[in-house]
Simulated scan of single mutants.
Amino acid sequence: MHRIMLREVIIDAPATDVEAVTRFWSGALAATPHPIPGEPFTALRDAASLPHVATQDIGDDPTPRYHLDIETDDLEAEIARLEGLGATVRTRHADYAVMVDPVGLPFCLLPPVSAEFETRAKTV
């Protein structure tokens, strides 16, 4: 058994549009944008939302989309569980995985980093 928690909704936008998307979603969710140094992410702090929200510069990829970040305290077990539900690993890294659901929508599995994990994660 291990624990999981949906941590974040990421709004992926091409480099040419990420500034406008960040400005829009910051306004829409009454949030303050905070670029993450050295990363393609901008956190939308204090957003009017339950999960954390961020934008991501996806460079030359022309396809805007949303993806979810899910925290887990057992990456291997969660990959296996989600594969059993129909997900597929797209890219495997040492400490996280990029997966797609049965219709090809991307999401990431990450180790726990949020303060909420201890109190909000569910055992699966």
Rank of each mutant, 00 (worst) to 15 (best):
H2C: 11
R3Q: 09
R3F: 09
I4W: 12
M5D: 01
L6N: 07
V9D: 03
A13C: 04
P14K: 14
A15D: 14
T16S: 15
T16Q: 13
V18C: 02
V18E: 02
E19N: 13
A20I: 03
A20F: 07
W25Y: 15
W25G: 07
S26V: 04
A28F: 12
A31Q: 14
P33N: 08
H34P: 09
P35D: 10
P37N: 05
E39F: 12
F41E: 05
T42S: 07
L44Y: 04
L44Q: 10
A47N: 08
A47D: 00
A48I: 01
A48L: 13
S49R: 03
S49D: 07
P51Y: 02
H52D: 14
V53Y: 13
V53W: 07
T55N: 02
Q56E: 15
I58W: 05
G59C: 03
G59Q: 04
G59V: 07
D61F: 03
P64A: 01
D69Q: 08
D73M: 05
D74P: 06
E76A: 15
A77N: 04
A77Q: 11
I79Y: 10
I79P: 00
A80C: 06
R81D: 15
L82Y: 04
L82D: 00
G86H: 02
A87W: 14
A87I: 11
A87E: 06
T88E: 06
T88C: 03
R90G: 04
T91P: 08
R92P: 00
H93C: 12
A94I: 11
A94H: 15
Y96W: 15
Y96V: 05
A97H: 04
V98G: 05
V100M: 13
V100N: 03
D101R: 11
P102T: 14
G104Y: 06
G104D: 07
P106C: 12
F107T: 08
C108D: 07
C108F: 04
L109G: 06
P111S: 00
P111F: 08
P112D: 01
V113R: 01
V113L: 07
A115F: 15
E118I: 08
R120G: 02
A121G: 00
A121T: 03
A121D: 05
K122E: 12
K122P: 02
V124D: 02
